[in-house]
């Protein structure tokens, strides 16, 4: 068994980038370091006996240096791919990004085409997976209007896509006040007219008050529309499930089974 130096970091783009910076500049050599992020799926049951764990405190300056070199030495496309991978729920994404960057700094912008390489292929697939879920949510998110006029939406995404979907709604609804809750991560994004949107954490906040739909009028109109638009002769639940997986439905107005 090898002894690795394992760099443990926060589960965020900045955390992973900081760990990459420190692992890279540590001088231990690429083969002897590993990055381990505190990912959604990591349960810490499997600590390596002979490896040394080094805890990395997120450092914004170091993270920015990494992102700057990815953009200048590889490409903006690669940078965006890496960011999306860092937002995925894949266990081991930090190390995957590290391995991808080793290749990327060597090969340059053409790295994204090297799909027959295992690491690049994995990054490509994860990028598609995260992008796919974000794109799904652009359509599947449902806002409901509260008494004070604020629009609220709840999502339970597998990947941390809130920062990928919010810009779309900020652009689309510039004059609305809206909140999107990610109940899987206890974070939310907030938007006010004329101001840049932000992401906030709410570990202790009680958002259950927002779960009760207030505007019943348009919600019932929407359900009427939804039921009437289907062609009875073509009813096909399997096709529906394939296009709209069940996991999204609990947050969608037209599918409330209660």
């Amino acid at each position: 068994m090898n002894n690795f130096k394992i760099f443990q970091c926060e589960n965020s783009i900045d955390g992973i980038f900081t760990a990459i910076y420190q692992a890279w500049s540590s001088g231990y050599g690429h083969a002897n370091v590993k990055i381990e992020e505190q990912c959604e799926r990591n349960n810490y049951n499997n600590i390596e006996l002979f490896s040394e764990y080094i805890f990395v405190k997120t450092n914004l300056e170091q993270a920015i240096m990494v992102s700057r070199s990815i953009k200048s030495k590889i490409s903006l496309e690669a940078y965006e791919m890496v960011c999306r991978v860092a937002l995925s729920d894949y266990k081991g994404k930090g190390d995957l990004i590290y391995r991808f960057l080793i290749l990327g700094f060597h090969i340059g912008s053409k790295i994204v085409g090297h799909l027959s390489n295992k690491v690049v292929n994995q990054v490509f697939m994860l990028n598609r997976y995260v992008n796919g879920e974000a794109h799904h949510l652009l359509g599947f998110i449902r806002f409901s209007e509260q008494e004070n006029g604020i629009l609220t939406a709840t999502i339970h995404p597998k990947n941390n896509v809130i920062s990928l979907v919010t810009p779309h709604f900020a652009d689309r609804l510039p004059n609305e006040r809206f909140v999107i809750f990610d109940k899987n991560r206890d974070i939310c994004s907030l938007h006010l007219p004329g101001k840049p949107w932000i992401i906030a954490e709410f570990p202790d906040m009680d958002s259950s008050g927002y779960d009760i739909p207030v505007d019943n009028e348009y919600e019932s109109l929407w359900k009427i529309f939804f039921d009437n638009i289907a062609i009875k002769e073509r009813v096909n639940p399997k096709l529906q499930r394939n296009n709209l997986p069940i996991r999204f439905r609990k947050d969608m107005t037209e599918f409330e089974y209660v």
């Binding site: 794109h135 652009l138 359509g139 599947f140 779309h168 652009d171 689309r172 609804l173 510039p174 004059n175 609305e176 939804f226 039921d227 638009i229 289907a230 062609i231 009875k232 073509r234 009813v235 096909n236 639940p237 399997k238 096709l239 529906q240 394939n242 296009n243 709209l244 969608m252 037209e254």
Partner: peptide
């Protein structure tokens, strides 16, 4: 979005839901 009104549009299109016949709405 034009910053003033409401709305934007994506060339790839967005499916918002799928009716019982499995067709996109």
């Amino acid at each position: 979005g034009n910053g003033a009104g409401i709305g934007n549009s994506l060339a790839c299109g967005i499916c918002h839901t799928f009716s019982a016949d499995g067709r996109c709405i």
